[in-house]
Every structure is written in structure tokens, then in C-alpha cells.
Design a protein around this nucleic acid. Structure first.
Lengths: 214, 214
DNA sequence: TCGTCATGATTTATAGATAATTTGGAGCAG
DNA sequence: CTGCTCCAAATTATCTATAAATCATGACGA
């Protein structure tokens, strides 16, 4: 949540808007009008426009030429799509990261898991979860892949927040521990398959309300 | 190659620049100065700026804040990264597309393969190849996934053009035919594994010159 | 030799003008 | 009276032109 002082106005705007969309403050399908946003941020419409482009690449809004941008709807199908993409890409990243995983990194990841278990709300849990995944995947040293995964994470987060806004309890994350155990034992394939299942679990949770159909 | 009359100037500029970068007319690492581009297209710098953003999401340029954009370098590592991402995602897409593949689609794909074999230059072959992949993957009906794959295709194309600009001959595409045969026989997993290998083949071709190291 | 400061070049932001799309209503056919 | 087409006004995105902020470069002084 650090709106760094030195990045450009466009980036700042895009970050704030992204937070709002993820948090569900702006409903899916809503039109985003550049003048209004510009006025709110005390800026002009050109940086707003660039912010929109950024959000578009993250898949948070869709832009129809000359007709403005709307907040992307996320049906159950889209959520599942994101989950499956994440599974495919994270498995790939893990396979490449595995040889470079040090004990220190795994310890840090375990720490992140504990933080997630102790988390009081969804936001904290999501942050810890993301940090876990980032820790074990970053050593793959594939920047483009990591960027793609990160964008998919924010899309997932959006779904997560929409579903369990009110009632929620931190699940002790067995999957994370299983992954770490497999990695410690050098069983990369086992870790990968657990990871794949783990990622898709989010998309399959039944009885999820508030999935706007657009 | 159709610069549609009705899309926005920014899109038009981005398409032209993308073609140039892919074709290797602009060398990797070169700075793109917005004023120059703007002048060349007889436009202002705002649409140019948006075009840059578009190119950034395709991974064709990298943008450092307040320091402009440069054409993305593509080392062998990056090419392999793209190939592996493509493999992972195309396999996923194929698994979902398989149940919806009709005989008509497969026939069309075979037609595309033949067109590729008859192709006289790399550009024609690439177009046919891309069309083949698109044909058999589109029925998966996962728009986000398809967009990601498409971006990876253009990145691959860039590498392809850089390597075999002068000497090149159309390889009769055994892989494509094997994939089609497997799909016709309902052996989805076989098709998927051939596809995975096929996609990575591009990234492993040895003796590839002109891979700028940046 | 190193640090500071001015100058030139370039990105970034603003304000105003232009073009396209949508919306609402009037007129006409069914 | 209902529904459709067509036209005009308002709204909105898009573009141009201009100003401000930032970064790189090289000279000058310690």
C-alpha cells in the first residue's frame, strides 16, 4: 500500500484504482470515466488514460475503443480460467526455481505460512499467501513469467475478497507445508503437483456468493 | 497487416512499431523517443505514449520511469522463457479446446499446415503457423488465456525473424500433422505432449545467430 | 580528482480543441 | 396507440499544442 512518492502520477492512480477494484468498491461492469477520475485526483486526463492502460494489462478493466473502459466482470468461468493459468505457470516457475532454492529461502517461506495462519483478516492472509508464492518462485529468474504470475495473483485476490468479505477464518495452510516438505526432500514433482492442486482450490471452492455475472 | 481505418491512432502506431521491432528493423536496446515517433506519424506524443504502453504489455519494449522506453532485448534465456510459457499455456488451452474441436476445424487446421509448407518466406510461414495454433486453441473459450498466448506468439516471431532472415526453407511440419492425427483419434494427451515439444523446439534450435545479448 | 552547478535534451503533465458515440425526441408507418 | 427510423444535442473519448518537471552532460572551482 505504499504509494511511492517518486513514481509517476499515472502509476499512482493505477495503484489506487486497482486497490478499489480488487476490494470490490467499484462493481464489475461499471464505467470508469476519465474526467471524473482526473478531477478526483486533481490531475488531467492523460495520466488517467495511461493508468487505464495499466489496469487493462492486469486484466482489471476492459477497454472498448472510443467507448471507454469498464471494470472487468469476473464470472465463475473467468475465475477458473485465472486459476488454471496460475497453476500452469506456477508449476513451470517452480520447476525452474527448485534447483536454486536455499534453506534460507525455505525457512522464510515457512515463516510466511505461519504469518498467514495467524492472519486476522482476508487482506493479511492474502498478503502472506502471495509472499509465500513469490518466495519459492522468484529464484526461477524468469522475469516475464513472474510478471505474468503476479498479474494473475491480483486477479485471484479480487475474487477472494469478493467472496469472503464478512465471514472468514484463517485456514491452517496444509498445502503450503506439504510443498515445503517436498521441496526440502528434493521431490520437485511432488511439490509441483501439490502446488497445482493448491492453486486451483481457490477457484473450486463451492458456495461462493457475489460472483457477478455481468 | 490491416491497419483498420477505425481504430485509434495509438493502436495504429503500436501496430506499425510492433511490426518493425518484430522484423528487426529497430535493434534491441534502442531508445524510442516519443517526439521523433510522433513527428514521423504526424501525430502528437500522447498517442505515441499509449502505443508504448501497448508494446510494453506485449513485452516488445521495456519502460523505465522518466527515462523513456527501449526496445526489449532478447537473449537466448528470454527466448527460452517465452517458449516454455507458450508450451505450458498452449497445452492448457488445448486440453480445454479438445472437446469442442469439430472435424471442420481440424480440416481448416490441416489446410493451414499445408499453407505453411508451401510458404516461400519466413513471414508467410509464421502467419500460417500462428493460424494453425489459433485454430486448434480458440475453442477453449478462455479469452484471457488466448490473449496471453497471442502475445507470446509475437515475441516468438521476433526471434524467428531475427534468426532466419536470409536463408530459410519451409520445413514440412511433421509436428502439426502428428497433433492433428492425435486429435482426430481422440488422444488429447498425446496431442498435448507433442504440442509442448513442438513449441519448445523453436527455442532450442542451435546455431542461431543474431541473438542480441543486451 | 572530485563535487557542484548550469545548460540542453526528454519525459511527463495540463489545458483546450476535435471527432465520435450515445441519448432523447420528433415524425411517420403499421 | 405502438413501434421504428432519423435527426439533433449532449456527453465522452481522443488528439494537439504548450508548459512544467526531471534527468543527463559538461564545465568550472575546490
Amino acid at each position: 500500500m505504499t504509494t511511492a512518492r517518486d513514481d509517476t502520477i499515472a502509476v499512482r492512480i493505477s495503484k489506487v484504482l486497482a486497490e478499489r477494484i480488487i476490494a470490490g468498491e467499484i462493481e464489475a461492469g461499471a464505467k470508469l470515466r476519465q474526467d471524473h477520475v482526473a478531477e478526483e485526483f486533481g490531475a488531467s486526463h492523460v495520466p488517467v488514460r495511461e493508468a487505464f492502460r495499466r489496469l487493462e494489462t492486469q486484466g482489471l478493466v476492459v477497454s472498448e475503443p472510443r467507448r471507454g473502459v469498464r471494470v472487468a466482470g469476473f464470472s465463475l468461468d473467468e475465475v477458473k480460467e485465472v486459476a488454471e493459468m496460475r497453476a500452469a505457470l506456477e508449476v513451470l516457475a517452480l520447476r525452474h526455481a527448485a534447483p536454486h532454492l536455499t534453506r534460507a529461502i525455505l525457512d522464510e517461506a515457512e515463516e510466511a505460512t505461519r504469518a498467514g495462519d495467524k492472519a486476522g483478516d482476508v487482506q493479511a492472509w492474502e498478503a502472506a499467501n502471495r509472499s509465500f508464492h513469490r518466495l519459492i518462485l522468484t529464484p526461477c529468474a524468469m522475469p516475464r513469467l513472474l510478471r505474468a504470475i503476479d498479474d494473475l495473483h491480483t486477479a485471484s485476490a479480487r475474487f477472494l475478497f469478493s467472496g469472503w468479505r464478512a465471514e472468514w477464518e484463517a485456514p491452517t495452510d496444509r498445502d503450503h507445508r506439504a510443498i515445503l516438505a517436498a521441496l526440502r526432500a528434493g521431490q520437485v514433482e511432488t511439490a509441483a503437483s501439490v502446488l497445482a492442486r493448491h492453486v486451483q482450490w481457490v477457484g473450486q471452492k463451492p458456495g461462493t456468493p457475489a460472483v457477478t455475472r455481468r
